[in-house]
Design a protein around this nucleic acid. Structure first.
Lengths: 112, 112
DNA sequence: TTTGTTTATAAACATTGTTTAGGAAATGGC
DNA sequence: GCCATTTCCTAAACAATGTTTATAAACAAA
């Protein structure tokens, strides 16, 4: 396992997408949430792959929903954050906040 | 090239480390800055590898410093952000801000 | 049983993250 | 000069994460 075990870029995005959804979050919902909020051009499987990896790492947990969707379709897998996933978010947040503090993005970057 | 071309997790960290240093930023300085600000347990080569990749992508630019360090030692490579690198930071910042907004980290995550 | 819908997985490949080992370029003492 | 030491950087390999393409599971309705 990696040294610090920090969240990858997309892992963070998916985790935040999940965290934003109050209830009954599953693959498609998370996909939509990310797409809407970020405008990012992602694909559905990308989200699934990442959710599976996050689950393997213990950052999220899933339960399989009851079979009957409105009309047809495979059962949903609902996700939620674990305590560890929650902590990972906090760690990422703190680290990024500290790094961003002291950065002035609006000014000249090249003078020489 | 990747779809959205977003900054990787460590790429962002290095870019921010660089951005925080007003002048004469080079490998060791950036390494130290990241270490001090984040408390992260990184290695020097990790920073160099990433700087090289960022330069290849046009996000940073380097110039080789004059040879004379205090007493002995190879010449430094000073780095600065390019306009593109600057934009990448802005894009990352906006995306993360939007995602974080609406996330309440202080509350219960599991109820069922 | 066939068709259509929704959701999810599998496998492969590309990029990024991290480590281990070593080389380049300078200084100072002998 | 030659050798040891200091400082900084590179190379190559491997591990983890990001992304795509193709495909399958599970159900409803015709």
């Amino acid at each position: 396992m990696a040294k610090g075990n920090y969240l990858g870029e997309f892992e963070l995005v998916v985790l935040l997408g999940l965290a934003r959804i109050a209830d009954e979050a599953y693959g498609m919902t998370i996909f939509e949430e990310i797409k809407v909020v970020t405008g990012r051009d992602l694909t559905v499987p990308a989200v699934y792959v990442t959710l599976n990896r996050l689950e393997k790492k213990g950052l999220v947990l899933s339960r399989t929903g009851e079979s009957s969707s409105e009309r047809g379709g495979r059962a949903k897998k609902f996700y939620r954050l674990t305590a560890t996933g929650h902590e990972s978010l906090e760690v990422s947040q703190e680290m990024l906040q500290r790094l961003w503090q002291g950065v002035r993005l609006g000014e000249a970057t090249s003078k020489s």
